[in-house]
Design a protein around this nucleic acid. Structure first.
Length: 562
RNA sequence: GCUCCCGUAGUUUAAUGGAUAGAAUGCCUCCCUCCGAAGGAGGCGCUGCAGGUUCGAUUCCUGCCGGGAGCACCA
């Protein structure tokens, strides 16, 4: 019932008219008042058939009128669109699914597929910054939309546990005398080390020595600080993942990809890589890109080589059909070169071809005050805590069972919504006031609509309202100008599109529209003591489940109360 | 200089080549004897410029203007 039927029927009708090869689409019309589905088939077929679009539309309509089940009305509109209006029975059937079917909204685009999704990628010894927050929100949402499409998803996180930043943090720990640091002290230590590194050649030399000692494990004191720092840092990240709702299956570390990368580059020189000024490089110019260094002149692997090692580690860890990596968009060009090199390496060719790079932009702030106020950079976690505090203030007037938890959920929802509301790759402006104002476009707006629907359903049931609809007559009459049910039925195709394009923001956009439609409906309709209590309750249940499932797809928590 | 990405209401944004470019915010009105007003109803306001392809362009192509990122031993 629905889209697939309509597509097939149009295909048949086109064949009958002698225009079988024509490409057309069946989609939701921009304005649902036009119908539940629309097709441009007549417009597309007009030219090959040598007729006017309206003429073709008339002929198609005549064929389709005989063919389709579940459609109440077919209309021709505008330049030659054909609009389909589903029957009451068909709509009711879909709404019942939306209200009760546990598999509501699932699709099978990735049936029997395994996908590895790598995201977040923070570096131990350093702070969890806003880029990591964005990568996490997007990666988690992609992972969930893929699972919703039937995929088995392997969540992976790649962390830089060796390199100059580690040496800087250890240097800082030594200076500050922190033998058993907290994660905050570790952050301080890194900041100190990083500034010292720029300060003088002497400090730089010392830190470079520590870096070497970390790789070679020659200094017991360094080894000890390395071990404790790594542990504290990773444990702290786990707390954040828990709050954000992510659970990784695999953690990859640079300490393991280094050696693999070195070996891979070595084995493929000079066939793929070549020596240049003492370094080993890949000449990307031959494929329209640019040259990058894979092994520096000291013989150490750069990020490029380590990423090749990472590809190998991934292959060794699990079998999968597709690999998705989420990073900041500043790595776009870099990633192309790395993948181009990987494609020339026999052992990596296959995975390189299966890899998709998804990028996110940078987060900017509408108000510059937030950073200056604390006198330091806004990290991912300071942003989270800040928003959480603000949410708590907003909720003071309410009596909640667990205000602390709700504040955390609202904060996570506010931030994730901001990241997931627009197409990936573009910079994001985070407006603290706006994201928490809870008016209009925001995470809390969706959360509020969901808890409100849930509360309504609960009260209606307690009042003895049943969701069993006696007559389909009630459905149509009740509708009037309220398109809530006709909007609800499109949820599954939205999830499918998000999975297909790896673009979770389609879900965000749809949910915002649904929440708005529900709020408007709510203002006009009474469920308990209303004219059509059963269908109204069914709709409220459908909204509750659809918003609930949609929020789950986005990884946005749905508080029971707020 | 070269490569890539992006220009949509004052601001933040949506739109597989389709119908009157959809929201939010902002500003101006209005709505709680009623299931949650963190809500709802109405009003004002937008595709950078110039060409091209097309029945039809925010979308594709070319040029220009404007912004961002990357371009050899950082990650």
């Amino acid at each position: 019932m629905g889209k697939d039927n309509i597509e097939q029927a149009i295909q048949k009708a086109l064949e009958a008219l002698g225009a079988s090869g024509v490409a057309f689409v069946v989609e939701r019309p921009g304005d649902l008042a036009h119908g539940d589905y629309a097709t441009n088939a007549a417009l597309a077929a007009a030219k090959p058939l040598g007729k006017s679009p309206r003429e073709v539309a008339e002929e198609l309509k005549a064929k389709l009128d005989e063919e389709i089940e579940g459609v109440e009305k077919i209309e021709i509109a505008g330049p030659g669109f054909i609009n389909f209006r589903l029957s009451r029975e068909a709509i009711l059937g879909e709404v019942q699914k939306a209200a009760t079917d546990k598999s509501w909204g699932q699709n099978d685009l990735y049936k029997n597929k395994t996908v590895m999704v790598e995201y977040t990628d923070p570096n131990p010894f350093k702070e969890f910054h806003i880029g990591h927050l964005m990568s996490n929100a997007i990666g988690e949402a992609i992972a969930r939309t893929l699972e919703n499409a039937g995929a088995k998803v392997i969540r992976a996180n790649y962390q830089g546990d060796v390199g100059p930043h580690v040496a800087k943090a250890i240097f800082g720990l030594l200076e500050l005398g922190f033998e058993n640091p907290t994660s905050e002290q570790l952050g301080q230590a890194y900041v100190l080390g990083a500034s010292r590194y720029e300060e003088s050649a002497e400090y730089k030399k010392r830190i470079d020595e520590i870096n070497k000692a970390v790789y070679e494990k020659t200094d017991p004191e360094v080894n000890a600080l390395y071990a404790i720092g790594r542990k504290v840092s990773l444990a702290h990240f786990e707390e954040l993942y828990k709050m954000l709702g992510t659970k990784f299956e695999h953690y990859f570390f640079e300490s393991e990809t280094s050696a693999k990368g070195l070996a891979l580059v070595g084995e493929n020189t000079p066939s793929v890589f070549e020596k240049s000024d003492g370094a080993v490089v890949y000449k990307g110019e031959k494929v329209g890109l640019h040259t990058r260094v894979f092994i520096n002149s000291q013989g150490l692997p750069t990020y490029e080589a380590k990423d090749l090692g990472l590809l190998q580690s991934k292959i060794e860890k699990a079998a999968f059909d597709q690999s998705v990596t989420v990073t900041a968009n500043e790595q776009t060009e870099y990633f192309k070169v790395m993948l181009a090199a990987a494609k020339e390496i026999p052992a990596l060719q296959n995975i390189a071809e299966k890899t998709t790079h998804v990028v996110h932009g940078m987060m900017r702030f509408a108000e510059g005050k937030m950073s200056s106020r604390k006198g330091n950079v806004i990290t991912g976690e300071s942003l989270l805590m800040d928003i959480q505090e603000a949410a708590k203030e907003k909720m003071q007037s309410r009596e909640l069972a667990d205000a602390e938890k709700v504040a955390s959920q609202v904060a996570v929802g506010a931030i994730k919504y901001t990241v997931l509301k627009q197409g990936s790759g573009k910079d994001i402006v985070f407006d603290r006031e706006k994201s928490l104002s809870l008016e209009g476009d925001s995470g809390p707006y969706l959360q509020y609509a969901h808890t409100r629907a849930a509360s309504l359903v609960q009260k209606a049931r307690a009042a003895g309202v049943s969701d069993k609809v006696e007559s389909v007559q009630d459905v149509e009459e009740f509708l009037g100008a309220l398109m809530l049910d006709r909007l609800l039925i499109h949820y599954p195709s939205v999830g499918a599109r998000a999975a297909h394009e790896l673009e979770p923001h389609h879900v965000t956009t749809y949910l915002t529209e649904l929440a708005a439609a529900f709020n408007s409906w709510y203002a006009q309709v009474r469920v308990i003591d209303g004219d059509y209590p059963s269908y109204a309750l069914l709709l409220a249940e459908a909204v509750e489940q659809t918003l609930g499932k949609g929020l789950e797809l986005l990884g946005i928590p749905a508080p029971k109360e707020m």
